[in-house]
Amino acid sequence: MAEPFILIPGRTSQQGVTLNEGKYTEGYRVEISTLQVAPEDMQRLELEDGDLVRVYNEVGEFTVPCVTARGDELPPGMLFISYGDNSSRLMGGDTQGCGMPDSKGLDVFLETATVSE
């Protein structure tokens, strides 16, 4: 059963570091393919670190493993992922006439993914 969330893609220092190492390194791939979920939501959805989740909106979707966000970094109802290929899949082409597509604060749905790719 899918639930609505707000997704915040953003930069992390780990993303910056692995970016320099190369976009085809395991470190970078893992960094941009890990979804952070608030501890309360993890518990409520009975998710454990490493479980695959599917995140989608009207533009696209991705399926990645999730982890519990550190401490109180992320409030419930919000998801975080490092910028990269996955977050771009959910970005629409409309920029509302300003050149910038909605890239943060995206309305998305999350559901547990039962089968890995």
């Binding site: 920029t95 300003c98 050149g99 910038m100």
Partner: peptide, 13 residues
């Protein structure tokens, strides 16, 4: 003209 001549837009359109 942002939105008209910006890269995201000329590609997405």
């Amino acid at each position: 003209n942002p939105g008209e001549f910006t890269a995201s837009d000329v590609l997405a359109r």
